[in-house]
Design a binder for these strands. Structure first.
Length: 520
RNA sequence: GGCCCCAUGGACUAGUGGUUAGGUCACCACCCUUUCAAGGUGGUAGCACGGGUUCAAAUCCCGUUGGGGUCACCA
């Protein structure tokens, strides 16, 4: 009887710490994570900091932190520098050096002493002849086709001549592989450059380090952006040089700018944390990014998925091949879906600091303890959650729940004020002052019964009441809003308001949409 | 330019030889309604083009066009 050995699935996300987490990076990380989890495997993060010049201090921690905010937490880290952290390539230099020696010994890599100037000249020459600009061993006789005599090499090394190590790409062999999303792909080695493996500063290049690490870390599936597809032959060759079995690969379609070029800064935000800062939630961003290039298929019309749902339903086979434009409209829609469903406590937690900051800035005539309480905030949220684009707007978009209006929307006033509005308003204020039941239900019957005998429709008072108590002509149900404000606030605002807002306003006919400040 | 990848409405996509080409976002209209949202109903809009293969092609093949990626001692 034969036992089949099943290899544990392991994926990785390998960012370079040069800045912030990019939305494209987030999607790559997400797909790696959910694929691994779906297969009951491991997901690890590896920091690829082999470029000393571009390295940004603290970027690695920031990357991890942003990633973890979305719920994508690496399974495995090892202890380094006194902290738990991911694998870091700059701490593994001796490993790469040793493997480089092996390749040198096997003559599958060679020292290259060409200077930048020579390389540049070489490139120009090839361009002139309409050829692909690539490192050409034969055209750079000084390196003798990568077969400089040992003595010469030793001499140059001893003299401290700067050098790099290049891989020796065999001529004219066909390199084929099966990509999990692209299907079969074929390259001719003649189009592959003698890639630099070790740079003159002693650091490995991405290509070299990632191949070695993927093997050493037993990565079974490399899931990354399509921009890496064309370097597959180099990587495959390296696996062959070492006699290692290459991992399976899946090259993801690119995220695109509106003009369909590769998603970049300058055409909008690309840093995940910028989206957080604007008020988008991790759930919505994750959901959105998951849908860019993947769908559940099989007639599914679902749009809303959380991380767990994705782990359950994701499959690499259903990842598309064409690039996807990063269109922010749908992200906004998703955000609203989440706001509608989010538990009260969660929203309170995010808006309380926003409210506190606002209270810092300006005083309020309302009872600060009351309006900061969970009870009050909860009521405000229920009235506002279907009307805002972001959670923080519960405070910033409807400030009237916390501050008395200091101005009244001119356009709304012009539209809703009639000759007798203030007189009737005054009467109604008296009525309000006399009632103790400020429930929405009671306020509604109160108003309707008051206004009926006067031959007016409820709207005659509803709009002025809204404007005087909130300052604006739009918002939640008036009765519910007044209930939340409470009697004291409502009466105070109304009394102050009737004095400031005068009737029709013979004014010039250009109300526009701006608001006018009507102060004392 | 060489090499590689891709191609369904404005955006994300379903579709694997026979469908009135489906869904979501956005947009428009109507309904609901005190406003604004939300919600409901309906609507505008699509298989890049040309050849094949086949009784039959969005679907398979070839070509064209278009777009993208990549050609660093950056990842």
């Amino acid at each position: 009887m034969q036992t089949t050995q099943v290899q544990r699935v392991r994926t990785r996300f390998a960012p370079s710490p040069t800045g912030y987490l990019h939305v494209g990076g987030l999607r790559t990380a997400l797909y790696n994570y959910i694929f691994a989890k779906k297969m009951n495997g491991d997901f690890i993060v590896r920091i690829e900091d082999t470029d000393q010049a571009r390295k940004v201090e603290g970027a690695d921690k920031n990357l991890l932190q942003t990633l973890e905010m979305t719920g994508i937490v690496p399974d495995e880290s090892f202890l380094h520098g006194g902290n738990f952290g991911p694998y870091v390539q700059s701490e593994r230099l001796d490993i790469y050096t040793n493997y480089c020696k092996q390749l040198l010994d096997q003559k599958q890599a060679y020292y290259c002493f060409s200077t930048a100037g020579e390389l540049e000249e070489n490139r120009k020459l090839q361009m002139k002849q309409g050829l692909q600009p690539k490192y050409n061993r034969k055209w750079l006789p000084e390196n003798m086709g990568g077969s400089m005599p040992e003595s010469e090499i030793k001499k140059k090394l001893d003299e401290g001549d700067p050098y790099v190590v290049r891989m020796r790409v065999p001529d004219y062999i066909s390199i084929m592989f099966d990509d999990l999303v692209r299907g079969p792909v074929e390259f001719d080695s003649a189009t592959v450059d003698d890639q630099v493996l070790m740079k003159s500063d002693g650091f490995p290049t991405y290509h070299f380090a990632s191949v070695i690490d993927d093997h050493l870390m037993e990565i079974t599936h490399v899931i990354r952006g399509e921009e890496w597809l064309s370097s597959m032959p180099k990587h495959l060759l390296l696996y062959e040089f070492f006699g290692w079995e290459p991992p399976k690969t899946a090259h993801l379609p690119l995220l695109l700018n509106p003009d369909r070029s590769k998603l970049s800064k300058r055409q909008g935000d690309v840093a995940v944390e910028d989206f957080f800062r604007k008020g988008y939630s991790p759930e919505a961003i994750l959901n959105f990014v998951a849908l860019l290039g993947w769908n559940e298929g099989e007639g599914s019309e679902r749009e809303v998925y959380d991380l767990k749902d994705l782990v359950k339903t994701f499959s690499l086979e259903r990842v598309g091949k064409a690039g996807a434009v990063f269109n922010i409209d749908k992200l906004g829609w998703l955000e609203k879906q989440y706001i509608k469903e989010r538990p009260l406590e969660a929203i309170i937690e995010t808006i309380r600091p926003v409210l506190e900051a606002e209270l810092e800035k300006s005083p309020t005539e309302m009872d600060v303890d009351r309006i900061q309480g969970d009870d009050y905030l909860g009521k405000v949220i229920e009235l506002m959650r279907e009307r805002v684009d972001f959670e923080h707007e519960v405070v910033t978009f409807s400030t009237y729940f916390f501050f008395d209006p200091v101005e009244y929307e001119e356009k709304a006033v012009a539209k809703r004020w009639k000759e007798d509005t203030n007189d009737i308003l005054l009467e109604f204020i008296d009525l309000l002052e006399a009632t103790d039941d400020f429930s929405a239900e009671n306020l509604e019957t109160l108003l309707k019964e008051f206004v009926g005998p006067k031959g007016k429709k409820p709207a005659f008072l509803i709009h002025p009441l809204r404007i005087l108590t909130s300052g604006v002509g739009f918002g939640p149900s008036l009765y519910h809003m007044l209930e939340v404000f409470g009697k004291e606030t409502v009466v105070r605002r109304l009394k102050k308001g009737v004095e400031k807002v005068k009737a029709p306003g013979s004014g010039p006919d250009d109300p526009g949409t701006r608001t006018i400040v009507i102060r004392d």
